[in-house]
Simulated scan of single mutants.
Amino acid sequence: MLWPGTLIGAGAGFAIASIPGAMLGALLGQALDRRLNLQSWGHLREKLGGRPMLRNDELLFVLLGRLAKCDGRVLGGHIQQARAEMRSLEMSESAQRRAIAAFNRGKSGRDRLRSYLRRLGAQPHAAEGVLRACWRMIWADGRAGGNELELISQWGKWLGWDAWQVQALARDYEPQKRPLGNSTATYQDALRLLGVSATSEPAQIKNAYRRLLSRHHPDKIAGSGATAMQVREATDKTRELHNAYTLIRERRDFR
Protein backbone atom coordinates (compact mmCIF):
# COMPACT_ATOMS: atom_id res chain seq x y z
CA MET A 1 0.00 0.00 0.00
CA LEU A 2 1.46 3.34 -1.07
CA TRP A 3 0.46 6.06 1.35
CA PRO A 4 0.26 9.75 0.38
CA GLY A 5 3.33 10.96 2.29
CA THR A 6 5.40 8.19 0.76
CA LEU A 7 4.32 9.10 -2.78
CA ILE A 8 4.84 12.81 -2.26
CA GLY A 9 8.27 12.23 -0.72
CA ALA A 10 9.33 9.92 -3.55
CA GLY A 11 8.13 12.33 -6.21
CA ALA A 12 9.82 15.34 -4.64
CA GLY A 13 13.04 13.38 -4.06
CA PHE A 14 13.15 12.19 -7.66
CA ALA A 15 12.68 15.75 -8.94
CA ILE A 16 15.62 16.92 -6.81
CA ALA A 17 18.08 14.03 -7.02
CA SER A 18 16.74 11.35 -9.34
CA ILE A 19 16.54 7.76 -8.02
CA PRO A 20 18.63 8.22 -4.84
CA GLY A 21 16.53 11.26 -3.97
CA ALA A 22 13.33 9.31 -4.60
CA MET A 23 14.44 6.55 -2.22
CA LEU A 24 15.32 9.00 0.52
CA GLY A 25 12.13 10.99 -0.05
CA ALA A 26 10.04 7.83 0.14
CA LEU A 27 11.59 6.89 3.49
CA LEU A 28 10.93 10.35 4.91
CA GLY A 29 7.40 10.33 3.53
CA GLN A 30 6.75 6.90 5.03
CA ALA A 31 7.84 8.18 8.43
CA LEU A 32 5.39 11.09 8.02
CA ASP A 33 2.58 8.70 7.07
CA ARG A 34 3.15 6.67 10.20
CA ARG A 35 3.44 9.66 12.48
CA LEU A 36 0.22 11.26 11.20
CA ASN A 37 -1.53 7.92 10.51
CA LEU A 38 -2.17 8.89 6.90
CA GLN A 39 -3.78 5.99 5.07
CA SER A 40 -5.30 7.71 2.04
CA TRP A 41 -5.43 10.96 0.11
CA GLY A 42 -8.70 11.69 1.88
CA HIS A 43 -6.94 11.45 5.24
CA LEU A 44 -4.28 13.86 4.01
CA ARG A 45 -6.91 16.36 2.88
CA GLU A 46 -8.62 16.15 6.26
CA LYS A 47 -5.34 16.71 8.06
CA LEU A 48 -4.57 19.76 5.96
CA GLY A 49 -8.09 21.09 6.52
CA GLY A 50 -7.93 20.54 10.27
CA ARG A 51 -10.96 18.20 10.37
CA PRO A 52 -10.56 15.42 12.94
CA MET A 53 -10.44 11.79 11.84
CA LEU A 54 -13.64 9.83 12.39
CA ARG A 55 -13.91 6.93 14.83
CA ASN A 56 -16.14 4.01 13.81
CA ASP A 57 -19.04 5.10 16.03
CA GLU A 58 -18.73 8.66 14.72
CA LEU A 59 -18.61 7.38 11.14
CA LEU A 60 -21.97 5.65 11.67
CA PHE A 61 -23.66 8.87 12.75
CA VAL A 62 -22.02 10.90 9.99
CA LEU A 63 -23.63 8.46 7.55
CA LEU A 64 -26.98 8.71 9.31
CA GLY A 65 -26.81 12.50 9.30
CA ARG A 66 -26.09 12.60 5.58
CA LEU A 67 -29.01 10.26 4.85
CA ALA A 68 -31.36 12.33 6.99
CA LYS A 69 -30.45 15.54 5.17
CA CYS A 70 -29.87 14.35 1.60
CA ASP A 71 -33.48 14.66 0.46
CA GLY A 72 -33.81 18.20 1.78
CA ARG A 73 -35.05 18.46 5.36
CA VAL A 74 -34.29 16.50 8.52
CA LEU A 75 -37.62 15.31 9.95
CA GLY A 76 -38.63 14.36 13.45
CA GLY A 77 -38.56 10.69 12.47
CA HIS A 78 -34.91 11.01 11.51
CA ILE A 79 -34.04 12.52 14.90
CA GLN A 80 -35.99 9.81 16.70
CA GLN A 81 -34.21 7.11 14.74
CA ALA A 82 -30.79 8.59 15.54
CA ARG A 83 -31.72 8.58 19.23
CA ALA A 84 -32.94 4.98 18.95
CA GLU A 85 -29.57 4.00 17.51
CA MET A 86 -27.80 5.66 20.46
CA ARG A 87 -30.02 3.78 22.90
CA SER A 88 -29.48 0.45 21.16
CA LEU A 89 -25.71 0.99 21.38
CA GLU A 90 -26.09 1.92 25.08
CA MET A 91 -23.91 4.99 24.60
CA SER A 92 -22.58 6.96 27.54
CA GLU A 93 -23.37 10.67 27.77
CA SER A 94 -20.01 11.62 26.29
CA ALA A 95 -20.46 9.11 23.45
CA GLN A 96 -23.93 10.51 22.76
CA ARG A 97 -22.49 14.01 22.51
CA ARG A 98 -19.95 12.76 19.97
CA ALA A 99 -22.71 10.99 18.06
CA ILE A 100 -24.84 14.15 17.92
CA ALA A 101 -21.86 16.17 16.70
CA ALA A 102 -21.13 13.50 14.07
CA PHE A 103 -24.80 13.47 12.97
CA ASN A 104 -24.69 17.24 12.48
CA ARG A 105 -21.35 16.93 10.71
CA GLY A 106 -22.88 14.39 8.35
CA LYS A 107 -25.67 16.80 7.41
CA SER A 108 -23.10 19.13 5.89
CA GLY A 109 -22.07 16.46 3.38
CA ARG A 110 -18.45 17.65 3.41
CA ASP A 111 -16.69 14.46 4.49
CA ARG A 112 -15.10 12.14 1.94
CA LEU A 113 -16.15 8.73 3.16
CA ARG A 114 -14.71 6.26 0.65
CA SER A 115 -11.49 5.50 2.54
CA TYR A 116 -13.33 5.09 5.85
CA LEU A 117 -15.83 2.65 4.33
CA ARG A 118 -13.22 0.67 2.44
CA ARG A 119 -11.32 0.18 5.69
CA LEU A 120 -14.53 -0.77 7.51
CA GLY A 121 -15.26 -3.32 4.78
CA ALA A 122 -12.51 -5.49 6.26
CA GLN A 123 -14.83 -5.99 9.27
CA PRO A 124 -17.87 -7.81 7.78
CA HIS A 125 -19.99 -7.77 10.94
CA ALA A 126 -19.40 -4.05 11.53
CA ALA A 127 -20.06 -3.28 7.86
CA GLU A 128 -23.39 -5.11 7.97
CA GLY A 129 -24.35 -3.29 11.17
CA VAL A 130 -23.67 0.06 9.52
CA LEU A 131 -25.74 -0.81 6.44
CA ARG A 132 -28.63 -2.01 8.59
CA ALA A 133 -28.57 1.23 10.59
CA CYS A 134 -28.56 3.17 7.32
CA TRP A 135 -31.63 1.31 6.08
CA ARG A 136 -33.41 2.04 9.36
CA MET A 137 -32.65 5.73 8.89
CA ILE A 138 -33.85 5.65 5.28
CA TRP A 139 -37.20 4.18 6.31
CA ALA A 140 -37.54 6.45 9.37
CA ASP A 141 -39.86 8.76 7.43
CA GLY A 142 -41.76 5.87 5.82
CA ARG A 143 -40.24 6.21 2.34
CA ALA A 144 -36.96 5.73 0.51
CA GLY A 145 -35.92 8.76 -1.55
CA GLY A 146 -33.81 8.57 -4.67
CA ASN A 147 -30.85 10.36 -3.10
CA GLU A 148 -30.93 8.02 -0.10
CA LEU A 149 -30.96 4.94 -2.32
CA GLU A 150 -28.08 6.31 -4.39
CA LEU A 151 -26.00 6.97 -1.27
CA ILE A 152 -26.50 3.57 0.35
CA SER A 153 -25.78 1.85 -2.96
CA GLN A 154 -22.49 3.74 -3.27
CA TRP A 155 -21.56 3.13 0.36
CA GLY A 156 -22.28 -0.57 -0.03
CA LYS A 157 -19.98 -0.68 -3.04
CA TRP A 158 -17.17 0.94 -1.05
CA LEU A 159 -17.74 -1.61 1.72
CA GLY A 160 -17.25 -4.39 -0.83
CA TRP A 161 -20.91 -5.46 -1.02
CA ASP A 162 -22.77 -6.31 -4.22
CA ALA A 163 -25.83 -4.21 -5.01
CA TRP A 164 -28.22 -7.13 -4.46
CA GLN A 165 -26.72 -7.78 -1.02
CA VAL A 166 -27.30 -4.18 0.03
CA GLN A 167 -30.85 -4.25 -1.33
CA ALA A 168 -31.62 -7.54 0.43
CA LEU A 169 -31.14 -5.86 3.81
CA ALA A 170 -33.84 -3.30 2.95
CA ARG A 171 -36.57 -5.92 3.24
CA ASP A 172 -35.91 -6.25 6.97
CA TYR A 173 -36.82 -2.61 7.59
CA GLU A 174 -39.18 -1.57 4.79
CA PRO A 175 -42.63 -0.65 6.17
CA GLN A 176 -45.24 -3.21 5.24
CA LYS A 177 -47.11 -2.39 2.04
CA ARG A 178 -50.57 -2.07 3.51
CA PRO A 179 -53.04 0.83 3.45
CA LEU A 180 -53.11 2.93 6.59
CA GLY A 181 -56.78 3.57 5.86
CA ASN A 182 -59.51 4.69 8.23
CA SER A 183 -60.44 1.32 9.68
CA THR A 184 -61.40 1.77 13.32
CA ALA A 185 -60.23 -1.76 14.12
CA THR A 186 -56.81 -1.11 12.58
CA TYR A 187 -56.47 2.16 14.47
CA GLN A 188 -57.48 0.50 17.73
CA ASP A 189 -54.98 -2.30 17.10
CA ALA A 190 -52.25 0.32 16.69
CA LEU A 191 -53.21 2.00 19.96
CA ARG A 192 -53.18 -1.33 21.80
CA LEU A 193 -49.80 -2.26 20.34
CA LEU A 194 -48.23 0.93 21.71
CA GLY A 195 -50.16 0.70 24.98
CA VAL A 196 -51.83 4.10 24.58
CA SER A 197 -55.38 5.37 24.17
CA ALA A 198 -57.17 7.58 21.66
CA THR A 199 -56.97 10.44 24.18
CA SER A 200 -53.25 10.12 24.97
CA GLU A 201 -51.15 13.22 24.36
CA PRO A 202 -48.71 13.15 21.41
CA ALA A 203 -45.78 13.28 23.84
CA GLN A 204 -47.09 10.16 25.64
CA ILE A 205 -47.50 8.33 22.33
CA LYS A 206 -43.98 9.27 21.23
CA ASN A 207 -42.49 8.13 24.54
CA ALA A 208 -44.34 4.81 24.36
CA TYR A 209 -43.13 4.24 20.81
CA ARG A 210 -39.51 5.06 21.66
CA ARG A 211 -39.54 2.85 24.75
CA LEU A 212 -40.91 -0.14 22.86
CA LEU A 213 -38.61 0.46 19.90
CA SER A 214 -35.61 0.45 22.22
CA ARG A 215 -36.78 -2.73 23.96
CA HIS A 216 -37.35 -4.68 20.73
CA HIS A 217 -34.55 -3.24 18.60
CA PRO A 218 -33.05 -6.15 16.57
CA ASP A 219 -29.47 -4.98 17.11
CA LYS A 220 -29.99 -5.01 20.88
CA ILE A 221 -31.48 -8.49 20.69
CA ALA A 222 -28.60 -9.70 18.51
CA GLY A 223 -26.08 -8.26 20.96
CA SER A 224 -27.51 -10.39 23.76
CA GLY A 225 -26.66 -13.65 21.98
CA ALA A 226 -30.12 -14.29 20.54
CA THR A 227 -30.75 -16.82 17.76
CA ALA A 228 -31.37 -15.81 14.15
CA MET A 229 -35.07 -16.58 14.62
CA GLN A 230 -35.28 -14.28 17.66
CA VAL A 231 -33.56 -11.48 15.72
CA ARG A 232 -36.06 -11.94 12.88
CA GLU A 233 -38.96 -11.80 15.34
CA ALA A 234 -37.52 -8.60 16.83
CA THR A 235 -37.23 -7.12 13.33
CA ASP A 236 -40.87 -7.96 12.61
CA LYS A 237 -41.90 -6.44 15.96
CA THR A 238 -39.97 -3.26 15.20
CA ARG A 239 -41.72 -3.01 11.82
CA GLU A 240 -45.13 -3.45 13.50
CA LEU A 241 -44.31 -0.71 16.00
CA HIS A 242 -43.24 1.64 13.22
CA ASN A 243 -46.43 0.97 11.22
CA ALA A 244 -48.60 1.47 14.30
CA TYR A 245 -46.88 4.73 15.23
CA THR A 246 -47.17 6.01 11.64
CA LEU A 247 -50.88 5.21 11.56
CA ILE A 248 -51.56 6.96 14.88
CA ARG A 249 -49.44 9.96 13.95
CA GLU A 250 -51.26 10.42 10.65
CA ARG A 251 -54.69 9.95 12.27
CA ARG A 252 -53.87 12.40 15.07
CA ASP A 253 -51.92 14.74 12.72
CA PHE A 254 -48.75 15.34 14.74
CA ARG A 255 -45.03 15.02 14.08
Results as ranks from 00 to 15, higher is better:
D111A: 03
S224W: 13
G11V: 00
D189A: 14
I248D: 09
A17M: 07
L169S: 09
W161N: 04
L32Q: 06
G142D: 07
G223P: 09
Q176D: 12
Y245H: 13
W164K: 15
L28M: 09
G49A: 11
A26I: 00
R97S: 13
W155V: 04
V130W: 05
R51S: 08
W155G: 01
Q188G: 08
N147C: 02
T238C: 14
L59E: 01
W3P: 02
H78S: 10
K107S: 11
L149D: 02
H78G: 07
W161T: 01
N182H: 14
S200G: 14
I16G: 00
V166S: 14
F103V: 02
R232W: 11
A190W: 11
Q30W: 04
I138R: 06
I205E: 12
L48Q: 06
S183R: 09
G21L: 05
L191W: 08
E46R: 08
S115V: 00
E240Q: 15
M137C: 03
L213W: 13
K220V: 12
S40M: 01
Y173L: 05
Y173T: 03
Y116W: 02
Q167K: 13
L194G: 13
N243I: 11
L44M: 07
I19E: 02
F103W: 12
S94H: 11
E148A: 06
T6Y: 00
E90T: 14
K177M: 09
G11C: 00
E128G: 07
W3H: 09
N243M: 15
G76W: 09
A102G: 05
W41L: 04
L120I: 01
P20M: 10
Y245P: 08
Y116A: 00
L24Y: 03
F14V: 01
L131P: 06
G25L: 01
L193S: 06
S92I: 11
A133K: 04
M91R: 14
Q80L: 14
A234G: 03
L131W: 10
G145F: 06
E174N: 08
M86E: 13
V130E: 05
W41M: 05
D162G: 12
R239Q: 08
R73F: 09
G11Q: 00
D189L: 08
W164Y: 13
A15N: 01
F254I: 06
D189E: 14
G129T: 08
N147Q: 08
G11S: 01
G145T: 07
R232V: 10
N104C: 12
E58Y: 05
A208P: 06
G225K: 05
Y187Q: 12
A95L: 13
E46H: 08
G42K: 00
R51C: 03
M91W: 09
R45D: 01
K107W: 02
H43Q: 07
S183P: 05
A102C: 05
L194K: 14
Q30N: 08
I248M: 04
L54Q: 03
L60D: 02
R252K: 15
Q165G: 14
A122D: 08
A168K: 11
G106V: 02
R252D: 04
R105G: 12
R83T: 12
L117C: 01
G50E: 02
G106R: 02
